[in-house]
Amino acid sequence: MDAGLPDAGRLAWWLTAWLRSDASPDDALAAITADDAAHRVVGLPGHPEPVGWALAVGALRSAGAQEAGLALPVDGDPVGLGGPRAFNDAALEAGEAVVLGPLLPGQDGWGLVPERVGRGVLWTAHVARRRQVPDVGEADRALRQALTLGATALADLDVARWRPDVADDLMDLRRTAAAEPVPGVPPRCVELAGRALRVLGIVDLALADDGGARTAYDVAARRAVLDPLARAGRRGLVAACSPEGWPQEPPR
């Protein structure tokens, strides 16, 4: 089973392309909204009411934003966040957020946290601080290693017994999901995002009904395999969707 980019991941890629003029506003807006009815942004300086992305991008540019990066925090692993607490708490509750940059040490900027409202998304702006993101190369290597170890461990745990209806998907960890290329995103990051999406989709699938485990031991054994996979997947996706850590393109 393949998962798509989360709302914040799609926004990070396309908003960066918009801010860097790698994509036209019309193309970026269509991609950000996708099949949703509308996206609005609330809490931006000078805009007390919710606004659309055309006005929001102008306000964010005025505030110094040149790029947008992803955060995918969970309890115990706030990957992609740098504070303050109010932003971290909101991002943790949502499970995702976008951080606008670049930010210098000691400099405050803006972060955006999504909330699904009907068929649309409301993004709430919060003060955000400089963060550290996983290195693309290190995140890619860690994800590949987690895939190798995870495939072996899942086989040892007899994954087909957990979910016979999806055993092939669960075991085929090395197949990469398709991540749609976005203007300006390095191909290596597109590939890493696809691999991370594949892993996160499999983890969600395996945990959908707690794997049919009958004992506490079964639950613990499965989570010992799936938790490192999920962590590696989140870090891989954050690295792939955070331009401050992207590899530099060679000069033309």
Rank of each mutant, 00 (worst) to 15 (best):
G76V: 08
H39N: 14
A63V: 02
I32H: 03
A91M: 03
L92W: 04
H47I: 01
P84E: 09
T33C: 08
P48D: 00
L70H: 02
A94T: 03
D77F: 14
F87V: 04
F87K: 03
L81W: 05
E67C: 14
F87P: 01
S62R: 15
V51S: 01
G69F: 09
L81A: 14
R85T: 10
N88S: 12
E49K: 09
G58S: 07
D89Q: 13
G69Y: 06
G43T: 13
E93C: 06
W53A: 05
L29W: 15
P73C: 01
A34E: 02
W53N: 02
D75M: 05
L81S: 13
L55Y: 08
A86K: 06
G52N: 03
P84F: 14
G69V: 06
L92T: 14
P73M: 05
A71V: 15
S62C: 00
G80W: 12
G80Q: 08
E67H: 15
A31Q: 12
A90H: 07
P50C: 05
P78E: 06
G82Y: 14
V42G: 03
G76C: 07
G80Y: 12
A37R: 09
P84N: 13
A54E: 14
I32G: 00
G69M: 04
V57Q: 07
P50I: 13
P48V: 01
L92S: 09
G52A: 08
R85A: 06
L44I: 11
S62P: 00
V74P: 00
L44A: 04
A37Y: 11
A94G: 14
W53T: 07
A65D: 10
L92E: 09
A91R: 05
A91F: 11
D36N: 10
E49Y: 03
A94N: 10
A94S: 15
D89K: 14
E93S: 15
P48I: 04
F87M: 06
G82H: 12
S62K: 12
W53V: 12
G82T: 09
H47G: 00
G69I: 01
G52P: 01
V74I: 12
I32M: 14
P78C: 08
G52K: 03
A63G: 10
A56F: 05
D89Y: 13
L70F: 09
A86C: 10
R85P: 00
A68F: 00
E49A: 12
L55D: 10
S62M: 01
V41R: 02
E93L: 13
A31S: 10
E93Y: 11
S62L: 09
L60I: 12
V41G: 01
L44H: 02
G69N: 04
L70P: 04
H47E: 03
H39K: 10
R40D: 03
A68Q: 07
V51I: 12
L70N: 01
G52R: 05
P45T: 02
L72Q: 03
E93R: 13
A65V: 04
A56H: 07
G83C: 13
G58A: 08
H39Q: 12
L72C: 04
L72N: 03
F87Y: 13
G83T: 15
